[in-house]
């Protein structure tokens, strides 16, 4: 049973107000499900800190407040590379409510936006944290213990064709992921340098496909390379079985969908 809802003017105050009896709420699309089911914590902590809604472009990247919604991203003229990802999350109402910050903590099969951020090499600014922003992969691994996320810093792809995202679902245009996959493949002189590939719904959290990255690095994005990448797609991943698909099925199709994504990126 919820006993109180607190809205704090700054993230620092919200951070201080957290405790084992409290849950931080952003868009509430997941938190309110638990509240409605009577299984949530006893206190809801929110914050009206303007940092949460801020979108700031810097030279090679963009800092997106954790409270920015999927709909805002989908409509933002400087975030065209993220628009297809934002549009893949839920239906229109969910996109008007659901936030970037909430997506980092959304359990399986959710977290499609986090998959894209992982492939882009995003870093996370945690409220009250001193020092450099943390790699998203670390934050995803320690989900229960990170504190309140203030914003994410996302490197922008140099060329639009360097980044691609694909979500596989059974219900279109709205449905949760059988899996999702994102790839950031910067190229120098036709060769991939610093490949990053991430899968969603293929483990307890969005996961980097390091075996795929190793295959792609230093290569041209051509048919033989794509075939080899598809072969190692599931190395290191641990897909779950749920109502949408078995672990076996996810393992069988992950390489096929990775191949489709990479082929689409070749076509540009």
């Amino acid at each position: 049973m919820i006993q109180s809802v607190e809205t704090h003017a700054t993230l620092a105050e919200a951070q201080r107000a957290m405790g084992s009896d409290a849950i931080f709420m952003a868009g509430g699309t997941l938190v309110m499900r638990d509240v409605n089911a009577g299984v949530a914590a006893t206190r809801i902590v929110r914050s009206s800190d303007p940092v949460l809604a801020d979108i700031r472009l810097s030279g090679d990247g963009v800092t997106i407040g954790a409270g920015v919604t999927m709909a805002t991203i989908a409509a933002h003229r400087d975030l065209a590379f993220l628009a297809p990802v934002a549009r893949s999350v839920g239906g229109p109402q969910i996109r008007n409510m659901g936030t970037v910050g909430g997506n980092l903590f959304a359990p399986h099969p959710y977290g499609d936006f986090a998959v894209a951020l992982l492939a882009l090499g995003a870093r996370v600014n945690v409220a009250g944290q001193i020092g450099a922003p943390r790699p998203l992969a670390d934050v995803l691994r320690e989900r229960g213990r990170v504190g309140i996320v203030a914003s994410v810093h996302v490197p922008r792809p140099q060329a639009p064709g360097d980044f691609g995202f694909l979500k596989v679902s059974r219900i279109k245009p709205k449905g949760v992921s059988v899996l999702s996959v994102a790839a950031h493949l910067p190229r120098q002189g036709g060769r991939i340098r610093g490949a990053r590939v991430a899968f969603g719904a293929m483990g307890p959290m969005p996961l980097q496909a390091t075996a795929v990255e190793r295959v792609l690095d230093g290569q041209a994005l051509d048919a033989p390379t794509i075939a080899r990448a598809a072969q190692v797609a599931v190395e290191g991943l641990d897909p779950p079985t749920d109502a949408l698909a078995t672990a076996w099925y996810r393992r069988e199709v992950a390489g096929v969908h990775l191949k489709r994504l990479l082929e689409r990126m070749v076509r540009g």
Binding site: M25, M32, R33, V35, N36, A71, P92, Q93, N96
Partner: peptide, 23 residues
């Protein structure tokens, strides 16, 4: 009460939202 059906849709300041998932 879980955000999946949309029967509770309202607009808040002009945007569609799910009233079952809104505080």
């Amino acid at each position: 009460g879980q955000g999946t059906c949309g029967a509770c849709t309202v607009t808040i300041d002009g945007e569609t939202q799910l009233s079952c998932l809104t505080l």
